[in-house]
Amino acid sequence: MAQESIAIHIGPRQNRKKAIVIYGVGEQHHPKEVGDILITLLKEQHFEVQSSNTLESLLNAANLKQLDLIVLVWTRGNITQQQLDNLLNAIKAGTGFVGIHASVGAFRSEIKYHELIGGQFLAHPGGINVTYQVYITDKQHPVMKSIQDFTVTTEKYYMLIDPAIHIVAATYFGEVTMPVVWTKSYGKGRVFYNALGHSVDVVTMPQVLDILRRGMVWAAN
Rank of each mutant, 00 (worst) to 15 (best):
Q148C: 03
A93V: 04
L87C: 04
I211D: 00
D210G: 03
N86V: 06
K17M: 11
E110F: 04
G94R: 15
I10P: 01
V203A: 08
P12F: 02
A219F: 05
L160P: 00
T54K: 12
H124P: 04
N60M: 09
A62E: 15
V143H: 01
H101E: 06
A220G: 09
N15W: 09
R108A: 13
K188C: 07
L42V: 03
E115F: 07
K92D: 02
K32N: 09
M144K: 02
Y23H: 15
P163F: 08
K145L: 01
H141V: 01
Y135H: 15
L58D: 10
S199C: 12
Q148M: 10
F121W: 08
M1Q: 04
G215P: 03
Y186E: 15
A170Y: 02
V73L: 03
Q14R: 14
N129C: 01
S103K: 06
G35H: 08
A19T: 02
E155P: 06
P142C: 02
H198F: 03
Y132E: 12
S199Q: 14
I39N: 08
K112L: 13
P142K: 00
S146M: 02
A102V: 10
G77W: 08
E33H: 08
I165D: 00
K65F: 10
V104D: 05
D138G: 07
H166I: 01
R16P: 14
Y135M: 10
G197N: 05
H9I: 05
V152L: 11
Y193M: 09
E115W: 10
I70K: 12
Q83G: 11
G77F: 08
I91D: 05
Y193D: 00
N86E: 09
H141F: 00
V104P: 03
A169P: 08
I6H: 12
Q28A: 11
K65W: 00
V168E: 06
Y135F: 14
F107H: 05
E33G: 07
E48Q: 13
D138K: 03
P142N: 01
Y186M: 14
K43Q: 15
Y186L: 13
S185F: 08
L42K: 05
D68K: 02
L58S: 04
S5M: 11
V152T: 05
Y172G: 06
Y157V: 02
G77L: 04
A195E: 13
D68F: 07
V130K: 13
N89R: 15
M178C: 10
N221F: 00
N86C: 12
V104T: 13
R190T: 03
R214Q: 00
T131A: 09
Y23K: 10
S109R: 13
R108E: 00
I91S: 12
T131K: 13
A2S: 13
L160Q: 14
T183H: 08
V73G: 02
N60T: 11
G119I: 07
Y157L: 12
Q81H: 10
A170G: 06
K184L: 11
E4I: 08
V71G: 14
I91A: 11
V202A: 03
V21Y: 03
E27I: 12
H30W: 14
G189Y: 09
A169R: 09
P163E: 10
Q66P: 14
V49S: 06
T171C: 12
F97Y: 14
K156N: 07
E48N: 14
D149H: 07
M1Y: 02
